[in-house]
């Protein structure tokens, strides 16, 4: 489903990704683990299309199409979703208004036409209930003054509503207590499906106790250094990343 080949990315003169290759199949949950500052979030942002990164080499194919030349909204319409590590606050825009705008924009891009507002609101409320999101919060400005847990739940709510083909979760566990972590993980697990894949980026193994990955990739110094099964995460938890960062100099 997602095929990254020899991806090189720089910010200014600084090289962040240096020949990263990665393949995620439909139905798969792939985890990327790695030390801080190794380019995990850069990978997420480059896939989603954030400005400011220069792709100097390589490609990223989603269902066979190189998405790196597309605008962020075009990638979203093709089914790519990024759950942000730091969800952005949007003052003055009610959460429900935003959700409607996002859902309808994607529907329009896919030639489906806008959904009737009452149906849409019903869907949003039902999904919110499933994730323990208070429906009062849907009237408030998006993420503005939300707690860390509320913001992360809102990301998962958006993911559930937008039903992407390929979802990237960037450090979704950061700042979550154990109860919120479980809610978020349940939300993700409920979306696991044969025709959908996940790339779960995390620093700690903890999240992977709740979202069981099929594959685990160790990332360091802008590349995938090792690939294995869930047991690799446990090994990293025990030994840390020193085996991977050591070869630097």
């Amino acid at each position: 489903m997602l095929e990254i080949k020899n991806l090189h990315v720089s910010i200014g003169d600084r090289k962040i990704l240096e020949g990263l290759s990665l393949s995620v199949k439909a139905g798969e949950v792939a985890a990327i683990m790695g030390p801080n500052g190794t380019g995990k979030s850069t990978l997420a942002y480059v896939l989603a299309g954030r400005e400011g990164y220069e792709v100097t080499e390589g490609e990223a194919l989603l269902d066979g199409e190189n998405i790196l030349g597309l605008e962020p909204h075009q990638r979203a319409a093709r089914g790519l979703f990024l759950a942000f590590q730091y969800p952005v606050e949007i003052p003055g825009v009610a959460t429900m208004t935003f959700l409607k705008a996002a859902l309808n924009a994607q529907r329009r891009a896919r030639g489906e036409g806008e959904a009737p507002t009452p149906d849409l609101m019903k869907r949003v409320r039902a999904a919110a209930k499933g994730l323990g999101v208070d429906s009062e919060i849907l009237k408030r400005a998006l993420n503005a003054g939300f707690s860390g847990g509320e913001k992360k739940r809102m990301e998962i709510l958006q993911m559930a509503l937008l039903a992407p083909r390929f979802a990237i979760l960037d450090e979704t566990d950061s700042g979550l207590d154990i109860d919120a972590l479980r809610v978020v993980a349940d939300g993700v697990n409920a979306l696991r499906a044969k025709d959908r894949a996940f790339l779960v980026i995390t620093h700690y193994q903890r999240l992977l106790n709740y979202i069981r990955p099929d594959t685990v990739h160790v990332m360091a110094r802008g590349r995938i250094m090792r690939t294995g099964g869930p047991e690799l995460a446990l090994e990293l938890e025990k030994n840390g990343y020193r085996d991977y960062v050591g070869e630097a100099a």
Binding site: A48, R50, H73, V88, G92, A101, A105
Partner: peptide, 29 residues
């Protein structure tokens, strides 16, 4: 704000629409 724009675009809003929503939010305050 570039971060706000990117967030909205990543959710599927074309650039102009994302700008419009942010401007509306700004005035709605």
């Amino acid at each position: 704000d570039a971060d706000q724009l990117f967030y909205l675009e990543a959710r599927g809003l074309p650039r102009r629409e994302a700008e419009g929503l942010l401007i509306e939010g700004f005035a709605n305050e």
